[in-house]
Simulated scan of single mutants.
Amino acid sequence: MKNFAVACFFAALGVLANAQPAESLAAPVPPTIDAERARIGMERATLETGFLAEDAECYKRFAVNSCLDKVNVRRREAMADLRRQEILLNDEERRIRGADQIRKTEEKASPENQQEAAERRAKAVSDYQSRLEREKQKTEDRAATQSSAQSNSEASAAKLRGSQEKSQVRTDKQATAAEEAKKLSERQKEAQERKAQHEADRLKQTKPSAKSLPLPQ
């Protein structure tokens, strides 16, 4: 979004540049472009200083390579963003110089040619603004895609956790059921053993005693 705002400012600057009097014989670079270039240079130096400090901190950690990789990813993204801003500045500077050249040609051209040149300038401005709109849309689409991917990842993770929790519940129930079945089997076995012992004791108690032998005559 920052790039888009800067680019819109340059587009407006280009319109003002086209509206300058035809007597202008040169198209000096607007101070705003030089100021933006200086700002980008200062921002690049500040960022690099910060990243170098982060590199130094990485060397104090155990996972040095992992830390440096993360810093380099952010370094490349930041520097690429500044490079895109520089490209927009260069494009705008070339467009302003090109418009000045067209104005010089128009000074010697017929009214019809001047009208055609004005239409070409208007089309160039329109094309430039369309390009900015497309860049804005791409940025928003990328942000939406990243957000959607993150949401899908979080949903998948939640679904996986739910599935794991259900699986654990089933496992716990099965373990509990197996333990209960084991205890029931042991109780039944103990009951059968007690019953068999009781039956054996009863038989011993009810067995008739042996008859006494007759006395000798």
Score class of each variant (00 low, 15 high):
193 E>L: 08
171 T>E: 14
173 K>C: 11
165 E>W: 01
168 Q>G: 04
178 A>T: 06
165 E>K: 14
178 A>W: 05
179 E>V: 06
188 Q>C: 10
167 S>P: 03
179 E>H: 10
159 K>E: 14
175 A>K: 13
173 K>E: 08
178 A>L: 06
191 A>Q: 07
169 V>P: 00
187 R>I: 09
159 K>H: 13
176 T>Y: 01
180 E>V: 06
182 K>L: 03
185 S>M: 04
190 E>Y: 10
160 L>Q: 14
188 Q>W: 03
196 A>F: 13
179 E>N: 11
177 A>T: 02
170 R>T: 02
190 E>H: 11
188 Q>E: 13
195 K>S: 12
163 S>H: 12
170 R>I: 04
162 G>R: 04
170 R>W: 00
160 L>I: 11
166 K>N: 11
184 L>Q: 09
192 Q>F: 12
178 A>P: 00
187 R>W: 09
167 S>C: 02
166 K>P: 05
182 K>T: 01
174 Q>I: 03
187 R>E: 13
186 E>V: 02
167 S>N: 09
179 E>S: 14
173 K>Q: 11
180 E>N: 05
164 Q>Y: 03
192 Q>T: 12
192 Q>W: 01
166 K>Q: 14
176 T>S: 06
185 S>D: 07
174 Q>V: 03
185 S>P: 07
191 A>E: 08
168 Q>P: 00
163 S>C: 08
176 T>H: 10
172 D>I: 05
181 A>S: 09
183 K>E: 00
162 G>I: 00
171 T>R: 15
176 T>K: 05
168 Q>T: 01
178 A>M: 00
173 K>T: 02
168 Q>V: 06
164 Q>N: 00
196 A>K: 15
196 A>E: 15
161 R>W: 07
170 R>F: 00
195 K>Y: 14
163 S>A: 15
171 T>C: 07
165 E>L: 07
159 K>V: 05
170 R>N: 07
185 S>I: 12
171 T>A: 13
196 A>M: 08
164 Q>R: 10
180 E>Q: 13
189 K>Y: 08
159 K>R: 15
191 A>H: 06
184 L>P: 03
160 L>S: 08
166 K>A: 08
181 A>E: 09
183 K>Q: 12
170 R>P: 04
182 K>H: 09
182 K>I: 01
180 E>P: 01
178 A>F: 00
179 E>T: 12
172 D>C: 05
195 K>R: 15
170 R>V: 01
183 K>M: 04
162 G>P: 05
187 R>M: 10
192 Q>K: 15
